[in-house]
Design a protein around this nucleic acid. Structure first.
Length: 413
DNA sequence: CCTCCACCGGAAAGCCGGGTCA
DNA sequence: TGACCCGGCTTTCCGGTGGAGG
């Protein structure tokens, strides 16, 4: 009989010292190469400790450029300081990718501000201005400075307009003296303010901070600081961190990506029972990451969108490249018939195709073919090793039809 | 230089399933 | 119970539009 399955992991001879240090939720004590940005936030937030409202801010930068990490870092320090000197600071962080309507953002804020005895704001049912009024009242009741962090605001605004920001930025004037409120918007899109009404823009963005992407050597610094707490000494091959950094630098300097790569590399080495992490593990990690991103995205697609993706892929499987929207629609219609679904309009299908494009599952470029009109040129972006038909799990009848090669596209003349 | 194809994509409105409230 | 509200998905309507072919 061998040792217990978990035993060798318990002996502390794993390659990780503390794997959380490489995770997303980890709050590092030190954020390399973001001193200026931190300084700007600190300078602005200092007002909250004196009891008046800091200016609203917008932070711009590509994903993984440290916006969220810096904000969390500074606001937790601020809260700590506020507690020490008896000036209450409340920060509320909302990710507007998950919570992406005006009502839900307000409800989220309102519920976060709940005091003993306050009721839960229902997730729907109330008129939006009632929720807003409730938020204002609760801020007054709690007193102190409220800092509302809206992560990925650009996503929210492009979906529902700047109405919410208009309301939130006017919140301050409606509050009593003991409380104040300021907004921090975090945007991946540098052109974000173009979506805003000028009046909203001037109120929201007196201060904006641009986070430049990390370059490869800066990413190395980030990785080194995390590796010292997260990974055992001497187990990393000297090329590992530079490679992770270089790969992530290509991805617009995404620090999150770099950390993922490093963490998964170590995991891979552990899985293979090796004592050293090498570049080959990094390569494995990169494939893994690519795979992990796509699988749930494809698997969780709503049925109609699966049918569309299916129609695109089946044509590609039959050797056709650069398919047009009309051609996809034709295949899609027959797929619907087989699946017993009522086909959607061309208009709808067109925008679902655009959605798939935005998700990076396919590429759809609109091009003009002169007299042959204007349409999208559609191709799959899935890695060759990925089997979409398995992941999609569309109905059995369709699958049999695929196997029997029932779907053939007649290319128009 | 003009035409005209085969779509694009914005705006608005409808439907439906969830909810509150008096 | 009916009036009212929210949000996701969809349809309807419709004014564009890049560039090959005339």
């Amino acid at each position: 009989m061998g040792e217990n399955l978990f035993e060798h992991l318990q002996r502390g001879e794993g390659l990780f010292r503390d794997r959380r240090a490489l995770g997303h939720a980890f709050k590092p004590a030190d954020l390399p190469h973001r001193d200026k940005e931190i300084e700007t936030l600190v300078h602005n937030f200092a007002d909250a400790l004196k009891g008046f409202a800091p200016s609203n801010m917008i932070l711009y930068g590509m994903p993984g450029s440290g916006k969220t990490a810096v904000t969390r870092h500074v606001s937790s320090q601020l809260q700590e300081r506020g507690a020490k000197i008896g000036q209450p600071i409340h920060t509320i962080e909302i990710n507007c990718r998950n919570i992406d309507t005006k009502y839900r953002v307000l409800a989220e804020i309102g519920n976060a501000l709940r005091l003993e005895g306050d009721s839960q704001i229902p997730f729907t049912g109330w008129p939006a201005d009632k929720v807003f009024e409730c938020v204002r009242a609760r801020m007054d009741a709690r007193t102190g400075a409220h800092i509302i962090v809206l992560d990925e605001v650009d996503h929210l605004i492009s979906r529902v307009g700047d109405d919410l920001l208009y309301s939130l930025t006017s919140l301050n004037t409606g509050l009593l003296d003991q409380s104040c409120c300021s907004i921090v918007g975090i945007s991946n899109d540098l052109a974000f303010t173009e979506m805003l009404d000028p009046r909203v823009e001037s109120r929201l963005a007196p201060i904006d901070v641009v986070f430049k992407p990390y370059n490869a050597s800066q990413l190395e610094d980030v990785l080194f600081t995390r590796a010292t707490t997260g990974i055992s000494e001497g187990v990393l091959d000297s090329d590992v961190i530079p490679l992770c950094a270089a790969l992530a630098a290509k991805e617009h300097g995404d620090a999150r990506r770099a950390l993922d790569l490093l963490r998964i590399s170590v995991q891979k080495a552990e899985m293979h029972d090796e004592k050293m992490v090498t570049v080959s593990h990094v390569r494995m990690a990169q494939n893994q990451l690519e795979f992990d991103q796509i699988t749930p995205a494809v698997a969780n697609l709503p049925l109609q969108q699966k049918l569309i993706l299916f129609s695109i892929l089946i044509n590609e499987k039959n050797g056709l490249k650069n398919i047009s929207t009309g051609e996809v629609y034709g295949t899609y219609e027959s797929a619907c018939e087989n699946a017993g679904e009522k086909p959607l309009t061309t208009r709808r299908v067109s925008s679902l195709i655009s959605d798939l494009d935005m998700m990076g599952i396919i590429s759809a470029k609109t091009i003009s073919k002169g007299r042959q009109g204007r349409s999208k040129r559609i191709n799959s972006c899935l890695p060759p090793a990925f089997d979409p038909f398995q992941v999609m799990q569309v109905s059995d009848t369709i699958m049999t039809d695929v196997v029997n090669g029932r779907y053939r596209l007649q290319r128009r003349l």
